[in-house]
Protein backbone atom coordinates (compact mmCIF):
# COMPACT_ATOMS: atom_id res chain seq x y z
CA UNK A 1 0.00 0.00 0.00
CA UNK A 2 2.34 2.76 -1.19
CA UNK A 3 1.58 6.29 -0.05
CA UNK A 4 1.62 9.08 -2.58
CA UNK A 5 3.55 12.31 -2.45
CA UNK A 6 0.24 14.16 -1.96
CA UNK A 7 -0.51 11.98 1.04
CA UNK A 8 2.94 12.80 2.44
CA UNK A 9 2.17 16.54 2.02
CA UNK A 10 -1.07 16.07 3.91
CA UNK A 11 0.72 14.27 6.77
CA UNK A 12 3.36 17.02 6.93
CA UNK A 13 0.53 19.55 7.37
CA UNK A 14 -1.00 17.42 10.13
CA UNK A 15 2.40 17.25 11.85
CA UNK A 16 3.02 21.00 11.34
CA UNK A 17 6.31 20.22 9.61
CA UNK A 18 7.31 22.86 7.08
CA UNK A 19 9.38 21.06 4.49
CA UNK A 20 10.95 22.37 1.31
CA UNK A 21 9.05 21.29 -1.84
CA UNK A 22 12.15 19.45 -3.03
CA UNK A 23 12.19 17.26 0.09
CA UNK A 24 8.89 15.49 -0.55
CA UNK A 25 9.89 13.06 -3.23
CA UNK A 26 12.83 11.58 -1.27
CA UNK A 27 10.76 11.50 1.92
CA UNK A 28 7.94 9.69 0.14
CA UNK A 29 10.37 7.04 -1.08
CA UNK A 30 11.89 6.62 2.39
CA UNK A 31 8.52 6.32 4.11
CA UNK A 32 7.37 3.76 1.56
CA UNK A 33 10.55 1.76 2.14
CA UNK A 34 9.86 1.67 5.87
CA UNK A 35 6.17 0.87 5.40
CA UNK A 36 7.05 -1.95 3.03
CA UNK A 37 9.24 -3.46 5.73
CA UNK A 38 6.62 -3.16 8.48
CA UNK A 39 4.08 -4.83 6.19
CA UNK A 40 5.52 -8.01 7.70
CA UNK A 41 3.36 -7.30 10.73
CA UNK A 42 0.39 -8.44 8.64
CA UNK A 43 1.78 -11.96 8.46
CA UNK A 44 1.47 -12.35 12.23
CA UNK A 45 -1.72 -13.83 13.61
CA UNK A 46 -3.10 -11.34 16.12
CA UNK A 47 -6.71 -12.52 15.99
CA UNK A 48 -8.32 -11.75 19.33
CA UNK A 49 -5.13 -10.27 20.86
CA UNK A 50 -5.78 -7.17 22.97
CA UNK A 51 -3.45 -4.31 21.95
CA UNK A 52 -0.77 -3.49 24.53
CA UNK A 53 -0.16 0.24 24.96
CA UNK A 54 1.82 0.17 28.17
CA UNK A 55 3.74 -2.48 30.09
CA UNK A 56 3.71 -0.82 33.50
CA UNK A 57 0.41 -2.36 34.54
CA UNK A 58 -0.29 0.77 36.56
CA UNK A 59 -3.69 2.33 36.81
CA UNK A 60 -4.50 5.84 37.91
CA UNK A 61 -1.88 6.86 40.44
CA UNK A 62 -3.11 9.03 43.30
CA UNK A 63 -1.23 11.28 45.63
CA UNK A 64 -2.27 13.21 48.69
CA UNK A 65 -4.02 16.45 47.79
CA UNK A 66 -1.40 18.60 49.48
CA UNK A 67 -0.12 21.84 47.97
CA UNK A 68 3.55 21.80 47.04
CA UNK A 69 5.81 24.28 45.31
CA UNK A 70 5.78 24.18 41.50
CA UNK A 71 7.93 25.81 38.86
CA UNK A 72 8.09 29.58 39.43
CA UNK A 73 6.67 31.70 36.62
CA UNK A 74 10.04 33.36 35.88
CA UNK A 75 11.71 29.94 35.60
CA UNK A 76 8.96 28.65 33.32
CA UNK A 77 9.33 31.68 31.07
CA UNK A 78 13.13 31.76 31.12
CA UNK A 79 13.46 29.54 28.05
CA UNK A 80 10.72 31.19 26.02
CA UNK A 81 11.68 32.66 22.63
CA UNK A 82 9.38 35.60 23.40
CA UNK A 83 7.81 36.47 26.75
CA UNK A 84 5.94 39.57 27.77
CA UNK A 85 4.69 40.65 31.21
CA UNK A 86 4.60 37.13 32.57
CA UNK A 87 3.15 35.45 29.48
CA UNK A 88 4.40 33.57 26.45
CA UNK A 89 3.94 35.85 23.45
CA UNK A 90 2.93 34.42 20.06
CA UNK A 91 1.89 35.93 16.74
CA UNK A 92 -1.78 36.90 16.52
CA UNK A 93 -3.90 33.77 16.14
CA UNK A 94 -7.25 35.34 15.15
CA UNK A 95 -7.25 38.29 12.75
CA UNK A 96 -9.58 41.28 13.23
CA UNK A 97 -12.34 41.48 10.64
CA UNK A 98 -11.49 45.09 9.76
CA UNK A 99 -7.89 44.13 9.06
CA UNK A 100 -8.99 41.23 6.90
CA UNK A 101 -11.12 43.58 4.85
CA UNK A 102 -8.46 46.28 4.68
Amino acid sequence: MPISEDEVRRIARLARLGLEPAEFSALTAELNGILERVERLRAIDVEGVEPLAHVGGLHTVWREDVPRPGLAREAALAGAPDAHEGYFRVPRVVAHEEEEEA
Binding site: V38, L41, R42, I44, V46, V49, E50, P51, L52, A53
Partner: peptide, 9 residues
Protein backbone atom coordinates in the same frame (compact mmCIF):
# COMPACT_ATOMS: atom_id res chain seq x y z
CA UNK B 1 -3.30 -1.08 16.52
CA UNK B 2 -1.68 -4.06 14.82
CA UNK B 3 1.77 -3.08 16.14
CA UNK B 4 0.35 -2.96 19.66
CA UNK B 5 -1.19 -6.39 19.19
CA UNK B 6 2.18 -7.74 18.07
CA UNK B 7 3.68 -6.06 21.12
CA UNK B 8 1.20 -7.95 23.31
CA UNK B 9 2.18 -11.22 21.64
Amino acid sequence: RRAQQVRAR
